[in-house]
Simulated assay, not measured.
Amino acid sequence: MDKEGDEQKTKKRKVVVANYMVTVATLVVWWHEKHIVKEPYLDFKVTREIYLRRLYYGNNRVCVEQLRLNKHCFTVLCTNLREHCGLRDTRNITVEEAVAMFLYVLAHNFKNRTVNFNFIRSGETVSRYFNIVLCAIIKLGRHYLIQPETEMEGYEHEKWEWFQDCLGALDGTYVKVHVLLRDQGRYRNRKNEIATNVLGVCSRDMRFTYVLPGWEGSAADSRVLRDALD
């Protein structure tokens, strides 16, 4: 019995010593990582500034590839948004950065988290400024998009009375295209031609005001029109 009791005590001592050594080793590793091994310090503000300057102040080709605008057009757009839409720099974000994030999403259809990572901004910030720039762009459209007039003065022919408030006319047409063999079935129209279905709208003075290309030749005119109305 005494021998078994001594063995139990010895085993307990070994367990206590092992736990003590594990605790000491853990503390040593923690101290080493905290006070000796230093993580490289990243100044996110400086990193962001370098990225933005390279994006819209650097090479013109990079600006076009990333934002779909050259540097001159980008500068003009930001200036117009400031002058006509009241867009202003904030304490943390400039107009240029907000517009760049907006164009970045439109150009590449990126998700919020991708823009968040590239611009080193929170997802909430990206979403908020995207909506701010979007509203400003809509306001800017009023300065450039002029609605056609509905008056038709000067037309004395008797048939014109039925088009008193007419804005224009729309029609679809087929434009022959070359596509891959696997896609020819979708682009084959009722005339057995490989073509794309294009919707065009013109004003009463025979000027095109809207064109919707890209639909396959097999698409019905009603489907193309519904897409234009949406």
Score class of each variant (00 low, 15 high):
residue 132 I to Q: 02
residue 110 F to V: 15
residue 100 A to S: 12
residue 38 K to G: 06
residue 67 L to D: 04
residue 85 C to R: 08
residue 24 V to Y: 00
residue 182 R to S: 14
residue 202 C to E: 00
residue 152 M to W: 00
residue 159 K to F: 02
residue 175 V to I: 15
residue 66 Q to K: 11
residue 160 W to L: 04
residue 96 E to Q: 08
residue 51 Y to H: 05
residue 206 M to G: 07
residue 39 E to N: 12
residue 150 T to R: 11
residue 72 H to Q: 15
residue 5 G to S: 03
residue 48 R to D: 05
residue 163 F to I: 01
residue 51 Y to D: 03
residue 44 F to D: 00
residue 17 V to G: 10
residue 217 G to L: 01
residue 17 V to S: 15
residue 4 E to D: 07
residue 131 N to L: 11
residue 26 T to Q: 03
residue 44 F to Y: 10
residue 70 N to M: 07
residue 154 G to Q: 07
residue 186 R to W: 07
residue 39 E to Y: 01
residue 13 R to V: 09
residue 52 L to Q: 09
residue 89 D to K: 06
residue 202 C to P: 00
residue 181 L to Q: 15
residue 161 E to S: 09
residue 161 E to G: 08
residue 89 D to Y: 02
residue 106 L to I: 15
residue 221 D to W: 06
residue 115 V to A: 10
residue 92 N to H: 12
residue 29 V to E: 10
residue 118 N to D: 07
residue 53 R to K: 06
residue 86 G to I: 09
residue 170 L to C: 03
residue 168 G to W: 05
residue 100 A to P: 06
residue 120 I to G: 00
residue 174 Y to K: 09
residue 145 L to N: 06
residue 57 Y to W: 09
residue 5 G to A: 12
residue 61 R to D: 06
residue 185 G to P: 00
residue 183 D to T: 03
residue 220 A to H: 10
residue 174 Y to L: 13
residue 113 R to W: 09
